[in-house]
Amino acid sequence: MASSLTRNCTRISKSISLRFMSNLPENTVYGGPKPQNPNQRVTLTHLRQKHRKGEPITWVTAYDYPSAVHLDAAGIDVCLVGDSASMVVHGHDTTLPISLDEMLVHCRAVARGAKRPLLVGDLPFGTYESSTTQAVDTAVRVLKEGEMDAIKLEGGSASRINAAKAIVDAGIAVIGHVGLTPQAISVLGGFRAQGRNIASAVKVVETAMALQEAGCFSVVLECVPPPLAAAATSALNIPTIGIGAGPFCSGQVLVYHDLLGMMQHPHHAKVTPKFCKQYAEVGEVIDKALMDYKEEVSKSLFPAPSHCPYKITKNELDGFLTELQNLGLDKAASAAASAAEKIEPSESRDGAFIAIS
């Protein structure tokens, strides 16, 4: 008995000591802005294991708390907070206008809702091209202020590859992005598929390999022919994530609003990619619900008595009506009495609870 008590005391003592140690054991050290508990959060280790086993990796691009909660519940591996928020959420025609501060707001909202996926934040246009110092500073803000686990940057020019390497050297996980790079539409001549001729196809593969060499742990392949995506996936030792790149990548990513079919407005219709599969028609449901709401309000059908949960007893109502009359507000007292009778006329007569707004 004494021996058992001694063992328990020793165990408690060790636990208390551990809690106050400044140099916590390796398995309790943060792997990013959030505790990377293997049982709760997806980590780079998880993604590498899936890649090694040939298990497809699931990504979804989302921009706010509600969508992040849905991704979390669905068990999606990676949530990308994309600069496509510029088009999807803010209504711009390109990804270029969105600022870093705006992106950080989206990142924090997603981080509050998605507790399981690996969180990746896009570096918006104009925040990492000038120098490696600018790139590292921006990436640090995305992790520290945006609460992301990793960043993604576009393109494969020498300066962007250097930026990727500098960010990796700073201790931040980086994802590359080749093929159609929306931030480069000025030189691409618009949102155009890439890799459709020999030179362009070879360039995509070489750029992906250069990003791998720079230390990227994954590369997004956007809007390229499937054979090219297959070649890049084979040539790389890191996962490729396809978006409009066919089925031969290590994983796939789609935008939350696109895959749910939420884009019913003409603006959204023109920014919804033709490669996207819509797994639902949520936009139509939303449109119908809003029209039904408008009609019911217009016809005074909503709110009905069942939507009036806040009650006042008959005694309190009578006292309220008396006070209104004492204040010379006879018309208001009459309106209140009439409302009470209309909401629950039978209960009004019986002296039970009466609704009043």
Rank of each mutant, 00 (worst) to 15 (best):
R11W: 06
R11H: 11
S13K: 06
F20C: 05
T28V: 08
P35E: 05
L44P: 11
H51F: 04
E55D: 12
I57W: 00
W59G: 00
V60P: 05
L71N: 11
V78E: 00
V81M: 05
T95N: 09
L100G: 04
C107R: 02
A111M: 03
L119Q: 02
P124D: 09
F125Q: 00
Y128P: 14
Y128I: 10
S131R: 15
V136A: 02
V136W: 12
D149N: 13
A150K: 03
K152R: 03
G156M: 02
D169E: 14
I175M: 15
V178R: 01
V178M: 13
G179H: 07
A184S: 15
I185V: 15
G189D: 01
Q194H: 08
A199S: 11
K203G: 07
E206I: 09
A230W: 03
A231W: 08
N237I: 03
I241W: 00
G242D: 08
P247R: 13
S250H: 08
V253H: 04
M262W: 14
P273N: 14
K277D: 13
K277F: 01
Y279A: 10
K288V: 09
D292K: 11
D292S: 13
K294S: 13
S300T: 04
P303N: 08
D318T: 11
G328R: 05
A333P: 11
S334D: 02
A337H: 09
A339Y: 01
R349P: 00
I354H: 04
